[in-house]
């Protein structure tokens, strides 16, 4: 469902051309669990941003569900993000003044979903992620694990087919990190494609497909039997 063909991305830093991604070719199917590993500066975050349509490739073609999304305009790309892609960030990125409930509701609100439909969906998510009694707390009143659970609930509120997680455990201790990963992995069982960026080999090796990146290129692609 995700197809990357000869994708390159270069930045101009000062008067120098820096290539972040070189000629990436990648196919990811529905329900796949993919981890992207590599040292910092290897281009893994850039790849994730490209897949998430937050960035545009310098050259190459990107297709989602067979449709070319490279040439879509800003508004069309926003719609694809809204309907098909969920993000989970290392630093959670919750809106500080909004309650957990309203943070989860945000994508539904932006998409213009009707109020009663929205309410039902948010209550369901709060229950699924064990946040019901924390629903009216603001992010600064929540623990790190709770915050990331809110972020995951938010990312899944529009039932996206792809979930992109950039170091989702980076700001968490080991136990809560493990819990968060379990939650994300459960989603793959519901046919959600999970793409996880991490520099932690232990975490990355849990994925069925493991991508290793160096200098903007995929150097190895391991298929795990797990």
């Amino acid at each position: 469902m995700i197809e990357l063909l000869n994708i390159s991305r270069s930045f101009t830093v000062g008067d120098q051309q820096v290539t972040a991604l070189r000629d990436i070719n990648l196919n990811i199917g529905a329900g796949d669990y993919v981890s992207i590993m590599g040292p910092s500066g290897s281009g893994k975050s850039t790849l994730l941003n490209l897949i998430g349509l937050l960035d545009r490739p310098t050259s190459g073609v990107y297709r989602i569900d067979g449709g070319n999304v490279t040439d879509l305009n800003d508004e069309q790309q926003a719609r694809v993000r809204s309907e098909k892609i969920g993000f989970v960030f290392q630093s959670f990125h919750l809106v500080p003044r909004l309650s957990a409930r309203m943070n989860i509701e945000l994508p539904l609100m932006l998409a213009g979903v009707a109020v009663d439909q929205r309410r039902a969906r948010v209550e369901e998510l709060l229950k699924n992620y064990g946040l019901t009694d924390r629903a009216d707390h603001r992010p600064d009143q929540l623990s790190g694990g709770q915050r990331q659970r809110v972020a995951i609930a938010r990312a899944t509120s529009m039932r996206p087919s792809v979930l992109l997680a950039d170091e989702p455990t980076g700001n968490l201790d080991q136990t809560t990190g493990r819990e968060v990963i379990n939650l994300l992995e459960q989603l793959t069982e519901q046919n959600v494609t999970l793409i996880l960026v991490t520099h932690d080999p232990a975490l990355g090796s849990r994925a069925k497909r493991q991508l290793h990146m160096v200098d903007g290129q995929i150097v190895s692609l391991t298929e795990s039997s797990r």
Binding site: L54, D74, E75, A78, R79, F87, H93, L106, L110
Partner: peptide, 16 residues
């Protein structure tokens, strides 16, 4: 700025 970035990631077009 971060909030704006987030809204974009969550699928808010520039006009919104």
């Amino acid at each position: 700025v971060q909030e704006i970035g987030l809204l974009k990631a969550l699928g808010a077009p520039a006009a919104q």
